[in-house]
Design a protein around this nucleic acid. Sequence first.
DNA 1: CTTACATATGCAATTTCTTGCACAGACAAT
DNA 2: ATTGTCTGTGCAAGAAATTGCATATGTAAG
Lengths: 180, 180
Amino acid sequence: MALSHAILVSLTDRAQSGYDLAKRFDQTVGFFWPVSHQQIYQELHKLAKADWVRAETITQADRPNRIVYELTDPGRAALAAWVTEPTTPPSFKEELLVKLFALDSDNRDALLAEIARRRSLHGERLARYEAIMAEHYPNPAALNARKRGRYLGLRMGILTERTTLAWCDEALALVGSAAS
Amino acid sequence: MALSHAILVSLTDRAQSGYDLAKRFDQTVGFFWPVSHQQIYQELHKLAKADWVRAETITQADRPNRIVYELTDPGRAALAAWVTEPTTPPSFKEELLVKLFALDSDNRDALLAEIARRRSLHGERLARYEAIMAEHYPNPAALNARKRGRYLGLRMGILTERTTLAWCDEALALVGSAAS
DNA sequence: CTTACATATGCAATTTCTTGCACAGACAAT
DNA sequence: ATTGTCTGTGCAAGAAATTGCATATGTAAG
């Protein structure tokens, strides 16, 4: 029930439509957790059925109708209970590692190119995160509790991308060097 | 089709039963990618149906029968094709980050305790990986291609755990300090 | 003697996630 | 005019993953 809880958390800030939620995901956790709009709509239906959120249709002139969801008291209670439960470390299914397990002379060049591609991709991500950090979180110690959570998410993103970059460099050097 | 390909890669080394594969997973990629034996058996059935692996039942006295799978030529070809395809960065669904997004004065102590728990858990993982590294990979540059892949997997594990530890320390300091 | 653990495979049900498709209007640019 | 992008919600099908249960034997420890 991970995505549904992420939705609940987002709704603690304000009532939102599926579209709002999808956009917000894209700009925050979506960096390292891509979520499609279909999944969000599906989860919202489930949450509504479980009475954890309340749906309200808003009709606007010259606009598609929006369905805005807000937390209910049972939803708030469920969220509070979930937050205090122990977590499990995320699984880390890195395709590239599996491919490197199959490294041989036939695929070496292709894998080297792929590592290089991934390296630049993670470089771009890092630059994006650091720009957000510089703009919105110049002084983390001065943040209130709610914003500290967001800061730590971004911080994790930055650390992870730096680590990935460093690993790519090592991998390029090792795979690229002659075998002994 | 990620797990199925991981199984194929493992079978390039030698023919194995579902049980063998599960055990091997546990000791390698399973550190950051937990796979249940049910999933492996299910995938093996699919792979056999697709003729990517060949099943052979081995009857032993006083033992449950084993079903050993080996790669077929089409399986080998499919694997080779897959290895050269581009990869996508893994998604990173860290529950703890979602919970920290909901950080407030009511759950602060529980979250601090949880971060501390996770910190020690990742410390244990790191120690385990570093022990394996010291024992099996004292000199990475001297490894052949196949072992370089494995080394890089382990190396990624070490870097990731170190990063996670550093993040936990930051999180403990920030969440633990007084809000301004 | 009983409990626990290792070997060995599997079904069934459910949940979760992904992919493809469909509808429908507004606004800006070419 | 047409193309593209943004707003906005959804179904349907399938793939992937999780959870719970079931079976069967050997060996070691308490």
